[in-house]
Every structure is written in C-alpha cells, then in structure tokens.
Amino acid sequence: MTPRPMVDKPMTDAELVVRVVAGDAGAFADLVARYHAACLRYAAHVLGDRMEAEDVVQETLLRAYRSLGRYQERQQFRPWLFRILVNRCRTAATRMGAQRLRTADAMDPDTVTARDGTAVLELRSRLVRAIAGLDEPHREAFLLKLGEGLEYEEIARITGASVSALKMRVKRARDQVRERWKELDDDGSR
C-alpha cells in the first residue's frame, strides 16, 4: 500500500476515490467507514428489516467498488453511492413484498440491551411505525431530506425525481408522519 500523507485535514471523498482507482484498495475502507452507517440506517428504515438492510448495504458497497473505475463524478460520491443504495432498496422491497416487517423489534432487536435501551427502542419504534404508512417515493424523500439532511438537488440526482416533485413529497410525507407520530404519542401517554 502506498503510504498516505500525514495531514490534519481528512481526505475528501474525491481524493479517496482517486486513490482507490490508482490502486490503493485500502482507501475504499475509509469510504466504507464514512458511509456505511448512513447507508445502513437508510436501508433499515426503508425496509424495516435490519438483516435485509445489511445485505442490501453490502451489495451496494460491492457494486460501488466494482464500478469505481468507470465512475466519473468524483466530486459527487455520496449521491452516486446513495443512488445505488436507493435502487437496491427498491429491488429488495419488491422482492420482500408483503413479508416486509415494519417493527422496531425486527429492525433493531439488540438495541433493547443498550443502557438507554428503552428510550432508543421507543423513539425508533415510533418513527418506524409513523413512516410505515408512506408509499415508497414519499418514504424515500422523507428519509433523505429529514433523516439524512441532503439537499433537494442531491435527492433529485439520487431518486430521479424533480426538485419541485420532491418538495411536494417531503411536505406531504412530513404532514402525514407528524400526524401519525402525534397519535402514537397520545397512545403511549395513556
């Protein structure tokens, strides 16, 4: 492996991509470290199944790695990676069909053992149930905007939808999820 320069500033995604394509395969591990958690939480919330999400994320990162030599948009690694992820999630959701599980237990069973396990599970459970009623385009837009905090232009590149359509989807999804969130909150406080 070529030694990496000792610098205070972390390498940009683009710099890491260049290193990978130049033969430093280990640089991709840095990109995996940077984006694996975000990919996993997105897939887990969209699919509602953590194990399925892990498979989808692995497949996504493998596809990204294999395609990196042909990848030209080096300044835009995150939307490029998420475009692959969103497509893999869509395929997995179709495959799972009616078997899709949308409970926090199926998504994150180990969390109950965490020190603040009760609160974590409760919050996540509420979110998963609140977004369960959204159709796929609205759930994608909602999670990428409110969850990941991406710009609309980025989400447009990822999903293929226009910015105006996405703004409408996020607004509708937000209203719906908020309503459901409040119902769940009321149920929980009774």
Binding site: L40, L61, Y65, V120, L123, V177
Partner: peptide, 26 residues
Amino acid sequence: VRDAYRRPIAGEERAREQVIARLREE
C-alpha cells in the same frame, strides 16, 4: 425525528467489518 432516525443501528460495526471482509475478495 432526526434524532430517532440517527440513533446507531445495533450491529453496525459488525456489518461494516463483514463488508470489508467481502471487499477483500474483490
């Protein structure tokens, strides 16, 4: 909502290691 969404997913580190191990084959 963002806080709930961004809570770490249990097993994330193990899953990441599996991805790295799988990538070594490539």
